[in-house]
Simulated scan of single mutants.
Amino acid sequence: MPGITREEVAHLGRLSRLELKDEELDHFAEQLDVIIGAVARVSEVAGEDVPPTSHALPLTNVMRPDEVRPSLTAAEALSGAPAQEQQRFKVPQILGED
């Protein structure tokens, strides 16, 4: 498999709107060649008998059922708030918007 060329890296840089220096073209060409080689090796390992997966171990949903349970009323939740407005916590403005 031929390695990635400086011209290909320069083309990728132009597509990405990156200004790459000459030494960066050589450096990135080497790095991308190593990455492409690693991906090719992984592709060789995965055979017909290996099903595609997103995780090495099977995952199960560990979320609890969504059930209504007793909780604080709005007044109880706001009772310790330093400031409140229209049954909500009032916090200082941080973005400078009105």
Score class of each variant (00 low, 15 high):
residue 44 E to A: 01
residue 48 E to N: 02
residue 25 L to A: 12
residue 82 P to E: 07
residue 53 T to V: 14
residue 62 V to D: 09
residue 81 A to E: 09
residue 51 P to F: 11
residue 8 E to D: 12
residue 28 F to S: 05
residue 68 V to T: 11
residue 42 V to T: 10
residue 65 P to S: 09
residue 8 E to K: 08
residue 88 R to D: 05
residue 28 F to R: 05
residue 40 A to E: 08
residue 53 T to G: 01
residue 69 R to L: 05
residue 95 L to P: 00
residue 6 R to K: 15
residue 38 A to P: 02
residue 7 E to G: 14
residue 72 L to T: 06
residue 86 Q to A: 14
residue 80 G to E: 08
residue 38 A to M: 12
residue 59 L to A: 12
residue 83 A to G: 06
residue 12 L to S: 08
residue 43 S to R: 04
residue 11 H to V: 05
residue 41 R to L: 04
residue 98 D to F: 13
residue 66 D to M: 14
residue 46 A to M: 11
residue 83 A to N: 09
residue 54 S to K: 06
residue 4 I to R: 02
residue 88 R to W: 11
residue 28 F to C: 03
residue 18 L to S: 09
residue 29 A to C: 10
residue 48 E to I: 00
residue 70 P to D: 04
residue 49 D to M: 11
residue 26 D to P: 12
residue 78 L to T: 04
residue 53 T to E: 08
residue 97 E to D: 01
residue 75 A to H: 01
residue 86 Q to E: 13
residue 27 H to E: 15
residue 27 H to V: 09
residue 76 E to I: 03
residue 43 S to V: 03
residue 82 P to W: 08
residue 50 V to D: 01
residue 1 M to D: 07
residue 56 A to V: 11
residue 78 L to N: 01
residue 14 R to C: 09
residue 83 A to L: 07
residue 6 R to S: 09
residue 46 A to V: 11
residue 48 E to F: 04
residue 6 R to Y: 10
residue 7 E to N: 15
residue 97 E to Q: 00
residue 27 H to R: 13
residue 89 F to V: 09
residue 94 I to C: 07
residue 80 G to H: 08
residue 93 Q to H: 04
residue 65 P to C: 04
residue 54 S to W: 10
residue 56 A to Y: 09
residue 15 L to D: 10
residue 7 E to V: 13
residue 22 D to S: 14
residue 88 R to H: 11
residue 41 R to S: 00
residue 94 I to K: 10
residue 55 H to R: 06
residue 66 D to L: 12
residue 44 E to K: 00
residue 96 G to E: 03
residue 86 Q to L: 09
residue 68 V to W: 15
residue 77 A to P: 07
residue 9 V to I: 15
residue 23 E to C: 04
residue 56 A to K: 04
residue 6 R to A: 09
residue 30 E to W: 08
residue 58 P to L: 06
residue 20 L to E: 07
residue 43 S to A: 05
residue 31 Q to V: 14
residue 40 A to S: 13
residue 8 E to M: 07
residue 25 L to R: 10
residue 80 G to I: 06
residue 41 R to W: 02
residue 87 Q to N: 12
residue 78 L to K: 01
residue 88 R to F: 10
residue 59 L to F: 15
residue 78 L to E: 00
residue 25 L to K: 13
residue 58 P to W: 13
residue 98 D to Y: 12
residue 96 G to P: 00
residue 14 R to K: 15
residue 52 P to D: 15
residue 36 I to A: 14
residue 96 G to L: 02
residue 44 E to V: 01
residue 26 D to H: 12
residue 61 N to K: 11
residue 50 V to N: 00
residue 26 D to T: 12
residue 69 R to Q: 03
residue 78 L to V: 02
residue 26 D to Q: 07
residue 88 R to E: 10
residue 39 V to N: 00
residue 94 I to S: 05
residue 13 G to E: 15
residue 69 R to S: 04
residue 90 K to E: 06
residue 13 G to V: 13
residue 19 E to R: 14
residue 41 R to T: 01
residue 18 L to R: 12
residue 5 T to M: 05
residue 86 Q to M: 06
residue 40 A to D: 14
residue 52 P to G: 11
residue 31 Q to P: 00
residue 43 S to F: 03
residue 17 R to C: 06
residue 63 M to H: 10
residue 53 T to I: 08
residue 92 P to T: 00
residue 90 K to D: 01
residue 73 T to L: 00
